[in-house]
């Protein structure tokens, strides 16, 4: 019966008994926290990318709204506007939108049938800007008024600023969320450590009486919870990455990806959380156990 046991190859078994139902609950909570943090990180990266994309698109172009004056046809006015801004420094291609295209853009607001054909609908002129040294809205304004064109320039800077502001808010929300999740993790680990110490009181007493220092016992709990947090954290992170991958694959064409353009490398964003979680679990378990052990006679 004992033939298998060889003292020469004996290695110490864990002093804290492994796994029970309580541990499973903890593992679930930690995995869920890591999952949420991982998803939030991926979402933050993706929406950051979306914002950057939108901003560079907006910043790379301007729109001129041209109104016809007197007997001039809208087409003629648009043509004069095109001539006025073409060749300015920092201006690339300039194109007047055809009436049909302009009507098409307005249709959603006014309705295609409701537009009388002789209504002097303003014409739109789109201006591609040199991405390195873009002409400003003021540059365009000056050129247009010099040419005597009645026009309004929209260089999209208002939208650009708005998107930037949204991005900052979003980043702060994400950071706040991470802080909250980490605080929850700390609280959960602290609670679990106190629980564990109480539940393992017999073992703690036996170790104390055998000459274990508080530090020795605290390190047992530190190692246990750091390991649990790393394992559960990894599970949660993998789940978050898998979920993001599924989102990317299923929403590949349109829809979600337009708002959240997830890149494959974003899937690595949850990677730090198991490590961070293990670190926090280690520190919290150690300090909680050390403090709690001081109360043990």
């Amino acid at each position: 019966m004992n033939g298998a046991f060889d003292p020469k190859r004996w290695w110490p078994a864990p002093l804290l008994p492994l796994g029970d139902a309580r541990d499973l609950t903890l593992l679930f909570v930690v995995a869920a926290l890591s999952f949420l943090a991982g998803l939030a990180a991926i979402a933050a990266l993706a929406s950051e990318r979306a914002a950057v994309g939108w901003r560079s698109e907006l910043a790379g172009s301007a729109t001129i709204i041209v109104r016809a004056q007197g007997a001039e046809t809208p087409d003629a006015a648009a043509l004069r506007a095109v001539v006025a801004v073409s060749g300015l420094r920092g201006v690339g291609e300039v194109r007047a939108l055809e009436k049909a295209k302009a009507d098409q853009l307005l249709a959603p607001w006014i309705g295609a049938d409701a537009l009388p054909s002789d209504l002097p609908v303003p014409r739109l002129v789109t201006v591609e800007l040199d991405p390195k040294t873009p002409a400003t809205g003021a540059d365009l304004d000056r050129a247009l008024s010099a040419a005597g064109v009645d026009a309004t320039v929209d260089d999209h800077s208002r939208w650009s600023a708005e998107i930037m502001r949204a991005g900052v808010i979003e980043r702060n929300v994400a950071l706040g969320l991470f802080a909250l999740l980490l605080a929850i993790l700390g609280a959960v680990i602290s609670f679990a450590t106190r629980q564990g110490l109480a539940a393992r009181r017999e073992i703690v007493d036996a170790l104390h009486l055998s000459g274990a220092t508080d530090g020795f016992i605290a390190r047992l709990f530190q190692a246990r919870f750091a390991r649990s947090a790393a394992q559960a954290g990894l599970a949660g992170a993998l789940l978050a990455a898998a979920m993001a991958a599924a989102l990317k694959l299923t929403g590949a064409g349109q829809g979600l990806t337009a708002l959240l353009p997830i890149a494959w490398r974003d899937l690595a964003a949850p990677a730090p959380f198991p490590v961070l979680g293990a670190l926090i679990a280690a520190v919290v378990a150690r300090t909680t156990a050390t403090a709690a052990l001081k109360e043990v006679p």
Binding site: P12, A13, S210, A212
Partner: peptide, 14 residues
Amino acid sequence: HLSCFDNAALAPRI
């Protein structure tokens, strides 16, 4: 939860 061997080895381990 520890074998006889682990129990007996507690003090030197600690």
